[in-house]
């Protein structure tokens, strides 16, 4: 997969075991092995791509599934740099994974301003089956999402619930913003150019 064929770089971040790999597996390959295969933590990061059709336009999503372990934290920039969208995953049955996404929000806000944040609450099937397993308050999750102007999705990689919707939203948002920024750029080119420069340096 060549880099220049990718239109949107999407990165998944979040505590290990939060369900990132399963989410990507479900989206790319429409499968869920969670029941049969024991947990396999991701090493470094894994790359996958998918072509989607948005309103007749073909767009390639380049998806980076990261490990989420602390030892790669200092190097995580190489994975999220220039990402257009970040999916911050937390496990609905594990509060500590929710607390962890604040860290990633901070990272992205300082280093990747242009990256749109999506918060993804995973393993919905588990709390659907047994509401007692819920460990993260719904309101709290919504509040955080609102706070950082992120969209919140509750997904299940087991049933596939909401997963296509999540990636579709990413693709659509990208298409819309590409259009508007193109137009904007033409209009505000003269007075904005100086302000924009430091920004673009930052992201290279």
């Amino acid at each position: 997969m060549s880099g220049n064929k990718v239109d949107i770089k999407v990165v998944l971040l979040g505590k290990s075991y939060a369900g990132k790999t399963c989410l990507v597996e479900r989206y790319l390959h429409e499968r869920f092995n969670g029941e049969t295969v024991p947990y396999q933590n991701t090493i470094g990061a894994a790359f996958g791509a998918k072509k989607v059709d948005v309103n007749g336009k073909k767009i390639v999503l380049g998806i980076w599934d990261t490990a989420g372990s602390e030892r790669y934290e200092s190097m995580s920039r190489i994975y999220y740099r220039n990402a257009k969208a970040a999916i911050l995953c937390f496990d609905l049955t594990d509060k500590s994974s929710f607390d962890r996404i604040r860290f990633w929000i901070g990272e992205l806000q300082t280093h990747e301003e242009a990256c749109k944040i999506y918060i993804c609450a995973t393993k919905k099937d588990i709390i659907d089956a047994d509401p007692n397993t819920r460990d993260v308050n719904e309101k709290e999750a919504q509040a955080l999402a609102k706070d950082v102007m992120a969209e919140l999705y509750e997904t299940s990689s087991k049933t596939g619930e909401n997963i296509n919707e999540l990636f579709m939203a990413i693709a659509q948002y990208y298409l819309e913003t590409v259009k508007t920024t193109e137009v904007k750029e033409d209009m505000i080119y003269l007075n904005e150019v100086k302000k924009r420069l430091p920004c673009s340096c930052k992201s290279t």
Binding site: M1, T21, E25, V37, Q40, N41, T42, I43, G44, A45, A46, F47, G48, D65, A67, Y72, M75, Y79
Partner: peptide, 12 residues
């Protein structure tokens, strides 16, 4: 590492 079997990986 089983995880290399599912996707191209990039790791330190």
């Amino acid at each position: 590492s089983e995880s290399f079997k599912t996707a191209e990986s990039w790791t330190p």
